[in-house]
Design a protein around this nucleic acid. Structure first.
Length: 194
DNA sequence: AAGCTGATGGTCT
DNA sequence: GACCATCAGCTTG
């Protein structure tokens, strides 16, 4: 049995949380199988002041609603045909979030390979859409607590070093394009891009 | 009501 | 490198 992290873990500035999540485990406890991986890449989305964030200028819709609630809740959304998973951050009414972009598989690797159509291990979870597919994380996680099963964060192993740089896939967002709000474990082979 | 835009990934050339 | 799946939300009318 893997113990979920304490809810108080999420109570910190979003950029700090983005870094602290590196090395933690993302776990999906299903009926007959445990799926888990080590978080190796994240991105911070800083809400009202961040052109690249869905909640830029406090945009509040059915989709972004959950970001206006307590830190540690799960924000899932559909990107084209894929589901992406974020952890809500910031105080109530401060709509920030951390996108989980890549994990290193730990438990349930055979299951992940199946879910990913027999892709090699190096290509199972090295991207935000890939890891949700591999771990069978869907929109049903929207608004759920990430400090309780079935989908939750658990303690992991501290990264030896952390790198940072511009975020991925937000070329048309003005100044926000260059903010170094992507974080990854230095030299980890499972990050989404080099 | 219609058209555009993605925090993506697979497939094809 | 180009194309595309597919949908919430924004823009324009």
């Amino acid at each position: 049995m893997i113990t979920p992290i304490d809810q108080s873990f999420f109570n910190k500035p979003t950029l700090q949380l983005s870094k602290d999540l590196l090395g933690c485990r993302l776990v999906h406890l299903m009926d007959n199988i445990v799926i888990s991986g080590r978080i190796v890449e994240t991105e911070a989305y800083m809400g009202p002041v961040d052109r690249a964030a869905h909640s830029f200028q406090n945009r509040r819709t059915k989709r972004t609603e959950i970001m206006y609630h307590e830190a540690g809740l799960i924000y899932t959304y559909q990107m084209h045909t894929h589901t992406l998973i974020n952890i809500v951050s910031g105080n109530i009414d401060c709509p920030e979030a951390v996108l989980i972009r890549a994990i290193e598989p730990i438990d349930g690797i055979d299951y992940m390979i199946q879910m990913r159509n027999n892709q090699p291990i190096s290509n199972l979870t090295n991207g935000p859409g890939k890891l949700t597919k591999a771990m069978n994380i869907t929109m049903s996680s929207y608004g759920q607590k990430s400090w309780e099963p079935p989908v939750f964060i658990a303690e992991g192993t501290k990264p030896h070093a952390i790198s940072s740089g511009p975020r991925i896939g937000i070329e048309n967002t003005g100044e926000a394009r260059d903010y170094p709000w992507r974080f990854w474990i230095t030299d980890n082979p499972f990050i989404s891009r080099k």
